[in-house]
Amino acid sequence: MELAHQKCTTYKAGSPPLTRKDTLEYLAQVPGWTLKNGHISRTFTLADASACIAFFGEIAALATEEGHFPDICMRESRYVDVSLYTYPAGGLTLNDFIIAARLNAKDTAQ
C-alpha cells in the first residue's frame, strides 16, 4: 500500500526503530526528504508568512489526526522546515515516512 494512504500506529518506549536498510527503502518513496542525524527532514517553500502559517495549521491537523508529531520551524517568512523522528522508538519508524508522504501529497495539492 502506498505510504500516503497508510495510518500511523502508536509506538511505545522500547519499540524498535527501522533498520538502516528499511529506512533507505522508505526514504526512496518520499521525494524531497533527506536523512540528517537520524531524522528525515524537508524544507517546504511557500509564498509568504501567511501561507507558512496556513501550512503549519495543515501539519498540526494531520499530526493530531495521526497522533504523530513532527518538529516544525518557519524561517524567513517563506520556508517551513519539517523534521520527523519517533522519539519513543529512539529512531525512525514507518510513522515518520507515512507523515512525510502525506505532507508531500499536500505540497503537490497546493
Rank of each mutant, 00 (worst) to 15 (best):
M1L: 07
M1V: 10
L3I: 13
L3Y: 12
A4Y: 13
A4I: 13
H5R: 01
Q6H: 03
C8F: 13
T9A: 03
Y11M: 06
A13N: 14
A13L: 14
P16T: 14
P17W: 00
L18D: 05
L18C: 12
T19W: 07
T19L: 11
R20V: 10
R20H: 07
K21D: 11
K21Y: 06
K21S: 10
D22V: 07
D22H: 06
L24E: 15
L24W: 05
L24K: 11
E25H: 15
E25I: 08
Y26C: 13
Y26I: 04
A28D: 15
A28F: 03
A28P: 05
A28H: 07
V30T: 09
V30Y: 02
V30P: 07
V30Q: 08
P31L: 02
P31V: 03
G32I: 07
T34H: 02
T34M: 02
K36V: 10
N37K: 01
G38L: 00
H39Y: 09
H39P: 01
H39F: 06
I40W: 00
I40R: 10
S41M: 12
R42T: 04
F44H: 08
F44M: 07
F44G: 06
T45P: 11
T45Q: 15
L46I: 03
A47V: 04
A47I: 01
D48F: 02
D48E: 09
A49S: 01
A49T: 01
S50T: 15
S50D: 14
S50P: 12
A51Q: 14
A51N: 09
C52M: 09
A54K: 08
A54M: 11
F55W: 11
F56T: 01
F56D: 01
G57D: 13
E58N: 05
I59H: 12
I59G: 09
I59V: 13
A60E: 12
A61Q: 12
L62G: 05
L62V: 04
T64M: 04
T64N: 13
E65W: 01
E65C: 08
E66G: 03
E66M: 03
E66V: 01
E66T: 03
H68T: 07
F69D: 04
F69V: 02
F69G: 04
F69I: 00
P70K: 03
D71A: 01
D71P: 00
D71W: 00
I72H: 02
C73L: 14
R75Y: 15
R75T: 15
E76L: 10
E76Y: 11
R78L: 10
V82P: 02
V82A: 02
S83W: 00
L84T: 05
L84F: 08
T86E: 00
Y87S: 14
Y87T: 14
Y87P: 08
P88Y: 11
G91T: 05
G91N: 08
G91I: 02
L92Q: 08
L92H: 05
L92K: 04
T93L: 07
T93Y: 01
L94S: 07
F97H: 09
F97R: 05
I98V: 08
A100S: 08
A101S: 15
R102P: 11
L103H: 12
N104R: 10
A105K: 07
K106E: 15
D107V: 14
D107H: 10
T108R: 15
A109I: 11
